[in-house]
């Protein structure tokens, strides 16, 4: 066996390696990919593609750890279904089936477990995707924050779309499905440590119905999809700029942010562009299909806040820039580590 070309020098795994930003990327590309994919890694997307009997299947797995388990607008069980369905949707695939693995901490109340199992069932039912199997493990008390869930999913790609950062062209439009930051801020506030209160709910939802509608209306113009979860919109777009060797130019004022998300971000010194979402997606669409795509999203319940937030340019490569109305420009970086509230 050939030795893997490892390029990861951090001595310890820290929380930042799981936060979805730069450190996560280093871990995946420097250690995981060299071992698992060798010299010629496939494009790293939310879902992988597998060919079987002439069909192109999308295959994905996602793990869910969240504290607290229940928060306004959702819970870990609902996230575990929606997150995996969204990963399939981002691969342009109609979700077919899910399997879930529960890692339960000894001492978890049965009522809590039942609540989450019911949440899984309900969320799966809502999008019409069956849970066809799973596994259960119980670990010692103090070792799993109550409950961890891993959900794997399989889906069937639509032959009309080809989604890849390689397809992204200068002039393409960047469309965002709705207001950002709701999930990350809701969970942050739900922990109660910051003593902040707001009428906010997580945006967790399955976005497949929107993607399905986009495919019907604008398949030939659809180039790239990504759900901006951990690391937020800034991280997702930086990955796009890097992978596609293009610039993403944002109109910052166009990005929909709810008042309470903005308020919390101002108080805590955070940037909404770095906050996690669980029910939004970014779409890069060719200019001739951009209008119909946006119109399609806006006509659907829950898609009213969709916006064109920017466009792709050839230069400066690998950068995400935001332009303001008065001519100021700022560089939008990936998230470094976890978003930390600051006082300075």
């Amino acid at each position: 066996m050939k030795t893997a070309k490892v390029n990861f020098t951090d001595s310890y795994i820290e929380l930042a390696h799981g936060a979805g930003g730069k450190a996560s990327r280093r871990l995946i590309e420097g250690l995981l990919v060299p071992y698992m994919m060798g010299d010629k890694p496939a494009e790293l997307n939310d879902a992988a593609y597998v060919e079987a009997n002439g069909s192109r299947l999308a295959f994905t797995a996602d793990s869910f750890v969240v504290n607290p388990l229940v928060f306004p607008g959702g819970s870990i069980g609902e996230l575990a279904v929606n997150g995996t369905i969204n990963d399939l949707a981002m691969g342009g695939a109609k979700p077919l089936a899910l399997v879930t693995t529960l890692i339960i901490e000894a001492g978890l109340a049965t009522s809590e477990l039942e609540r989450e199992v019911a949440a899984i069932a309900k969320a799966a039912q809502r999008v019409g995707v069956p849970v066809v199997g799973g596994d259960t493990k119980v670990v010692e008390h103090g070792k799993a924050d109550g409950l961890y869930i891993t959900t794997a999913g399989i889906g069937l790609t639509d032959p009309r779309v080809s989604l890849s950062s390689r397809n992204v062209q200068p002039g393409d439009h960047v469309i965002l499905s709705g207001a950002i930051g709701d999930h990350g801020i809701t969970v942050l506030l739900a922990r109660g440590e910051l003593d902040l209160e707001a009428d906010l709910t997580s945006d967790t939802r399955a976005v497949w119905p929107f993607v399905s509608a986009l495919i019907e209306a604008a398949a030939p113009g659809l180039r790239w999809l990504r759900d901006p979860t951990r690391g937020g919109v800034a991280t997702a777009l930086n990955e796009l700029a890097r992978d596609a060797q293009v610039a993403v130019i944002l109109d910052e004022e166009a990005i929909p942010v709810r008042p309470a998300v903005r308020g919390a971000c101002e108080i805590l010194g955070l940037d909404p562009l770095h906050i996690a979402n669980e029910g939004q997606f970014l779409a890069v669409i060719s200019p001739e299909y951009a209008d119909i795509a946006l119109k399609t999203l806006k006509s659907m319940p829950g898609g009213e806040n969709a916006k064109c937030i920017g466009e792709i340019q050839a230069e400066p490569k690998k950068a995400v820039l935001a332009r303001s109305q008065y001519g100021g420009t700022r560089l939008i970086d990936m998230l470094i580590g976890d978003p930390l509230p600051r006082i300075c």
């Binding site: 910051l194 003593d195 902040l196 209160e197 707001a198 009428d199 709810r258 008042p259 309470a260 903005r262 308020g263 919390a264 101002e266 108080i267 010194g269 600051r342 006082i343 300075c344």
Partner: peptide, 30 residues
């Protein structure tokens, strides 16, 4: 050097005269 932002007082706490509730864009904190 110090992040400070404007908020509006929406409640004076009678029980505890040291505190008030402020509102920043719909986010409240004591």
């Amino acid at each position: 050097m110090c992040l400070a932002i404007p908020g509006q007082i929406v409640e004076m706490l009678d029980g505890d005269r040291h505190y008030a509730v402020v509102n920043v864009c719909g986010v409240r904190r004591k």
